[in-house]
Nucleic acid binder design. Structure first.
Lengths: 231, 231
DNA sequence: CAGCAAAAAATTTGATCATATTCTGTCCCT
DNA sequence: AGGGACAGAATATGATCAAATTTTTTGCTG
């Protein structure tokens, strides 16, 4: 229909840019997910207007969205910061992620294609490279990509949205885990998951994902315990 | 500490008011949850600045939060509207709500007190009154209160947040259900739930809630089907 | 001559910014 | 140590610019 714009001779923008508040949101989201922000770190509007070169209205909107996502917390007075997880939070994250992500895996496994398996293999090998290189940010990003690429096949936008929300909550803490244990010692169940997908064993795939989730969250819990004792 | 403000002779505000964007958010949230907005209805910023008497910045922030909540949808162009649920959405809502709310019930049931039971009984009787009076908005509100009062005892803020999010999604559609079937024909499992709580049968309580959830969502699905056939 | 269609203007709405006001936290002075 | 002033940051408003929808006008065809 009218998906193709007029695109007259004037146009220097063949691809209409997303609005600034969306760009700011995506940028902050990436920083939170991939470990560029530490738990407890304060977030100020003016700091972001400077570092991102945007006005304050778009920054305000992005921060509101992230607060609603649980990716940032509003601290009663007018301060905003990156959340520090409590033991109770982690316990709930384990329950929800296990229920949600094993079901997403189950649904994605029903629509599995050779293309998907190849895509996941590529991501997993990129992930291994990042581990070998000690690239924490790259590791976090590829790990997220692995899960996201799989879940995208589940045809379940509502559940996908909830899952993303959970990732935003523990993203910053995952960075701390890497800093503490190193990327070398972060086991996952991606290989088992891929094996299960290849032979079409849906329940095995869901089980592998559940184990992957629990394992990851237990690492977070361990670091958390260490911190709370230290403090 | 300094909870008591100076409160000099001037002060007409003994209780510090919440910021405007918060007030706007709560107001819109109530309108969406309790059926004052129809699925598909368009939401404009300028319309809200007029009807709520607020500036556009607070309204914008409230809308962003609600979009992040899934209570409103951004329609690609710059339009925002109340979401219309698809059959796939309802199916996912059933799965998620069943898993989440039965677990919340389980956790709340472990900390059950006579005070909680009395509170729930009071809400349920107010709910019955609203049904008898044909007060749709009151019915929706009391129904929400019933679930919320119970879940508040679960000591699970993360899961509570997700649950609230789900309610925001189907709130407008629930209103349509009432309009179609009337409040008289909306069965719930509150009585069974209260019985289970009284005798301390945690699993029975969780089961009753799961049935309550499925029943409610099936009503939404039925109306949805009717609509899609009609169109 | 009437009706449809396409194009252009006008209105409505959203996005962004700059500015003023209010509040919180801190530091200094008594 | 307690109270008050100062500084920094957040909230909120209004104005301005850009985009999209709607309406109007114009031209063409049956």
């Amino acid at each position: 229909m009218n998906l193709i714009k007029k695109s007259a001779a004037k146009a220097p923008k063949p691809a209409a840019e997303p609005p600034v508040h969306e760009q700011v949101y995506q940028k902050l989201r990436g920083q939170i997910l991939f470990g560029e922000m530490a738990p407890g770190q304060a977030v100020t509007i003016q700091g972001l207007t400077d570092s991102l070169g945007a006005g304050m209205t778009p920054v305000r909107e992005a921060i509101r969205r992230l607060i609603s996502d649980g990716a940032l917390v509003f601290q009663g007075n007018r301060r905003v910061s990156v959340p520090v997880l409590s033991a109770a939070d982690v316990e709930q994250l384990i329950f929800v992620r296990q229920a949600l992500e094993s079901e997403l895996t189950r649904r994605a496994a029903r629509h599995v294609t050779p293309g998907l398996i190849a895509e996941l293999e590529a991501i997993d090998s990129a992930l291994d490279s990042a581990i070998a290189a000690g690239d924490v940010s790259g590791y976090l990003q590829q790990n997220y990509n692995f899960h996201t690429a799989l879940y995208a096949r589940a045809q379940a936008p509502v559940m996908l949205d909830l899952s993303d929300r959970m990732w935003l909550r523990f993203g910053p803490s995952l960075r701390v885990v890497c800093g503490r244990f190193g990327t070398q010692n972060l086991p996952d169940r991606h290989k088992e998951l891929l094996d299960a997908l290849r032979i079409g064993d849906i329940e095995a795939a869901a089980g592998a994902m559940a184990e992957d989730v629990v394992q990851g969250m237990q690492m977070v819990d361990a670091v958390l315990e260490e911190r709370s004792v230290q403090v």
